[in-house]
Design a binder for these strands. Structure first.
Lengths: 190, 190
DNA sequence: CCGATAACAATGCGATCGCATTGAAACCCG
DNA sequence: CGGGTTTCAATGCGATCGCATTGTTATCGG
């Protein structure tokens, strides 16, 4: 047996470098060499762990989604209304790390338009998001499945749009959060 | 004086090729050579009219925005409620051309995260969009400026988010339009 | 302690990139 | 009907790209 290393850790280091690079220069700035430099490892290492550039790029969005799911699952013991707000507010960039994450997310969103594998990963992630929100709205508001789903899509769309406005600097994260909470309670009242 | 050509026309042909290319391959697929090939002109011509790749890319979003503005200004004689809906619904991809346009738009949105000139153009466009919507909501609903602006941002965010869902294929253009109209009338009632 | 093997590091290659340069064809003015 | 100017088309160059290949090192079971 050869030398033992923590593969998961190695892969994460590289992907973390990829994320920073994407946040700074967009996916256009990604090459095997630039990612290696940003992660402060050799290009050979990147090749060893991901093989091709495409696999590396796909791994970038895959890990980003997986981390969001893990974060969400940590709220399993909270009431439905809380979990719903977690999903709606999670992506709004409050911290620096959050801003990087959502910037990377939108970079991949554009990538998804022309890249099948990326599109499938994002589509699956949104599908789960809609389903979870629908479930929470049903429980919290006592709506039937169809109505709850329509509202879930509305709320998620609003969250997406507001996130975009925060990224562009049009409004602050606080304003976006307030807007979502207002809208959410207006829905409850109606 | 040398041979006279229609510069505007020449520039448009090239930018149209750029748009198609961006819709098909994303901004990553853009190079002086690929754009020239897609527009079926020589690379020398592209260089002659735009100089650098960066200027070409910026011209792409600039022209896209200008066209949207012209389309909007054609509704100048319609009532405020109509003009508001025009802005909210315009980007939802109903036709093929519309789908290309909004796909290109989202590609540039990602580009804006890392490209100052693109960011400024998009920021100015959204600023005008918010202002126009605010004005129409004031007139149509009789709200004060602050409240109207908050609702304008909400409506535009919802429109953005729903457009995204249509692009991904999560919902249809008709469903998105229905959702916006429902939301709009719910606002009117409250 | 030794050979097999995983884990890289280093290098090479053909393709493509943005951009500068060069030269020719087309056109209008005098 | 030259000559000046614009509008390109063609080509060259250095840099960078993804990826394959090769070389080196560290580790551990036998």
């Amino acid at each position: 047996m050869p030398r033992a290393v923590d593969h998961e850790q190695r892969r994460f280091e590289i992907v973390a470098g990829l994320w920073h690079l994407v946040a700074e220069q967009g996916i256009e700035g990604v090459s095997l060499r630039t990612v290696a430099a940003r992660a402060d490892v050799s290009m050979g290492r990147v090749q060893h762990y991901f093989g091709t550039k495409d696999a590396l790029v796909v791994a970038g969005i895959d890990l980003l989604v997986k981390r969001a799911v893990i974060e969400y699952e940590a709220t399993a013991d909270r009431p439905p209304a809380d979990r719903l707000l977690h999903i709606l507010l999670q992506q709004i960039p409050a911290t620096d790390a959050g801003r990087i994450g959502v910037t990377v997310w939108y970079a991949y969103l554009a990538k998804a338009m022309t890249h099948t594998a990326v599109r499938q990963i994002l589509a699956e992630a949104t599908r789960v998001g809609v389903e979870e929100c629908t479930r929470h709205i049903q429980e919290a508001d006592g709506l039937d499945a169809a109505a709850a789903r329509a509202r879930a899509i509305e709320l998620l769309a609003l969250s997406d749009g507001l996130t975009l406005r925060v990224l562009v600097g049009d409004i602050t994260a606080d304003e976006a959060e307030a807007s979502i909470r207002t809208y959410r309670s207006r829905l409850l009242g109606s």
